[in-house]
Design a protein around this nucleic acid. Structure first.
Lengths: 131, 131
DNA sequence: TTTGAATTTAGAATAAGTATAAATCTTATT
DNA sequence: AATAAGATTTATACTTATTCTAAATTCAAA
């Protein structure tokens, strides 16, 4: 059921995602693979990312940008994007349960999950701005 | 500053978005224009949607699907997608202020807004399933 | 050791959206 | 009314992110 087949390419892709802390896109992963001396086909990188996502070793993040990002952090968490520099940080603070309850009541949906993308200005950009 | 120049095509696009309640994509809008007898260039539809978005007559929704959707409802609200049938409904229940506060504290960001996409099963699909 | 399944590769194909340059429409000015 | 300036539309080419395809390669099992 959950048998893992980690080929060389999948392992290499996984290592990159696992050791990156900036939520890389497929193109980022591709570049870092090349830096490490690998030369996989583009399709293989996408396949690996999909495979790893299906096996729940990584998560695909759709943050409203044009390209998906990937994240090896699996515990439930949200993200925040800096409107100035574009960096993406993690938000561990959990969505209040009363809120999901209110949403279920309002919509009649059976609510399974919520993807939240906060927007704002990161502390670095805040200090740069006030210069 | 906020002068409006609603050409025939922009007006037609706006009318479609305003009178649709299913959050249409650009392609949906295109189809509905054709149904109404219009034959605008594809680029014009995209330009109009962008124009109307900039003028804040409509909103662009990026819900993690491949295509953006558009919405003429301007008051602040979120969305919920049915995982079974794909329909998108509105969520008016507001994000709790204490939560944004907690996120600001946690991340050091100046938090401006949050886009929330809930996922679940709509009431129709719930009843269908239990059949 | 052949046979079949899974994976990788290279490259074509697709989908959504943007850019461009020419044509057309508007508007203000003479 | 004539014209110039500016905005908009059109048709089409292009870009970007991603998926698909078919052949080649690798892996696994009998």
């Amino acid at each position: 059921m959950k048998s893992l087949n980690l080929t060389t390419q999948r392992q290499a892709v996984y290592d990159i995602v696992r050791n990156s802390h900036d939520h890389p896109t497929a193109a980022d992963v591709m570049n870092r693979l090349v830096e490490k001396g690998y030369n996989f086909a583009y399709g293989t990188v996408y396949n690996s990312l999909r495979y790893l996502t299906e096996k729940e070793l990584i998560r695909e993040l759709k943050l409203g940008e044009s390209a998906s990002r990937y994240d090896a952090k699996l515990d439930d968490h949200q993200h925040i994007i800096c409107e100035v520099c574009g960096r993406v940080d993690e938000v561990m603070s959990e969505i209040p349960k009363e809120w999901s309850g209110a949403v279920a009541k309002e919509t009649g949906y059976d609510v399974h999950h919520a993807h939240v993308v906060f927007g704002g200005v990161c502390s670095e950009c805040q200090t740069k701005r006030t210069k």
